[in-house]
Each structure stands twice: as C-alpha cells, then as structure tokens.
Amino acid sequence: MKKFLLGTVALAALASPALAADMPARTYTKAPPPYTAPAVVYNWTGFYIGGHVGGAFTDGNNLMGSDARFMGGVQGGFDYQFAPNWVMGIEAQYSWLPSSSNNGLVFPGGTVVTGNTDQIGSVTGRLGYTWGPTLLYAKGGYAWRDSNNINAAVGGVPVAFTTDGNHQNGYTVGAGLEYMFAPNWSAKAEYQYYNFGKTTFTGGPSDIVGASFRNDEHTVKLGINYRFGWGGPVGSNY
C-alpha cells in the first residue's frame, strides 16, 4: 500500500509541470478609473420672465420727498452668453408704487404742491460677466413713468397752473448681481436709477412760477427669474 501511495505522489509531481505548460497565460486587465461626475457648465442663454419687490426713494429734491416707498413688479428679457464668460441681453421691466405719504412742498405764498409717481418702467440693454452660477451686470436704457400727477392748492383749494411738460420719458442706469440657484431658476439683487429731468412751473400762483424740481427715483430690488430652454447647469444631475 505504501509503495502504491508513493508511486501516485511521484506521478503527480511529474505531471504538474506538463499541465502548467499547457495552461494559457493569464491576461492582465487594468482596473477601471474611479468615477468622476461631469463638470457643471452654466448657460445663461435664453428667455426669462420673473417678478421683483423692493423700495424707491429720492434725495429730497423731489415732490415725492425722501421717504422710501414699497415697489413691486414684473420683468422679462433675453440673454446671450458668448466669448465664453460674457453675457449680453435686453430686458423690459414694469413696477407699481403706492401713493407718496409726503405732504408736499409749501411755497412762501402758501401754495402747497404735491406729486406722485405710481407706475414706472424701463427697456434696457445689459452686459455682464459670469463665473459659474454667478452673473455681475450693468444695465441702461429708456425709462417711462405714468403721467406726472402734480397738484397745487392754496388754503386747501385747488388752483390752476402750467408746467414745461409732463416728463414721462427719461433714462435709467443700474447694476446688479444674479445667481442661478437651481435648473432654470435665478435670483437677483439690483440697484436702478431713473431720471426724467426737471419740471418747471410756467404759470399759476406767483410764488410757484419759475420754481423747478427734479423727477428721479433711486430703487433697490430683489427679484426671481424663470429661465426657459437653455438656462441652468448642463452636464450634471444638479
């Protein structure tokens, strides 16, 4: 029995090199690289609509006084991204303002003059620089407001007067920062200045004839926009 076992072991030892020679060589397989998420690419090109709230105030040389007034409104526009971090576009904006709480200007002869602007709008071009989801921009263009609601009274009784125009049309400039916080959604903070020139009284009670005042508004707004189509990050699951 021992001889049989020894013979079996010897035969297996002789056969092992031959079997190893007949086996195919093991092929080397490179391990796959670790997964990396695709880079997020933000695209500002496209149409958008949105709304805003904020405040309007003057420097005191205005019939509205220097009291801040609430404002709210809507906006819409189109942006185009190029070169590749620059964005240019056009925007239309419309805002409502409540009646001014200012009691008006009292002239030496006792004439009290009041005024109010309760609607204001603009059509502007804008140019900005973007890095990732952030856009810093400047804007400027045409401004419009509702008819110049001026009233004059002596002792509480309305009196007739004339001015050199209603000054409904003017210009506007501003700047802002916009941030794309979700696909197709962005939020912005913006300062915008509106100027409609000066109004001069050309007729009426003697104490107001020749007097003039500025027609301007300083505004600060917070807004949100919904961007159609191309807006938002591309290349990620964000």
Rank of each mutant, 00 (worst) to 15 (best):
W44F: 02
N43W: 13
L6T: 06
T134D: 01
A153H: 06
S212C: 02
G156D: 02
Y191N: 03
S206I: 09
F196S: 01
R214Y: 14
A37V: 06
G77M: 03
Y179G: 08
G54R: 05
S99E: 14
P32V: 05
V220D: 06
V53M: 12
W185F: 12
A31R: 12
V234D: 08
F213S: 10
M180S: 14
P108S: 07
E190L: 00
S101P: 14
Y238K: 10
N184P: 00
F47Y: 12
G121D: 07
W96C: 03
V106H: 00
G128M: 09
A83S: 08
S147Y: 04
F78D: 02
A83N: 13
V40H: 12
M64Y: 10
A18W: 01
L222G: 15
R145I: 10
D207Q: 02
Y191M: 03
V40A: 15
G65R: 04
H52V: 00
I90A: 15
G156H: 04
K188V: 00
A10Y: 04
G7S: 14
L14I: 14
T111S: 12
K3R: 12
Y226S: 02
L63K: 07
S99C: 02
G141A: 07
P84H: 08
N166I: 01
A83D: 11
Y94E: 05
Y193I: 01
G231H: 14
D22M: 10
G165F: 00
S95E: 05
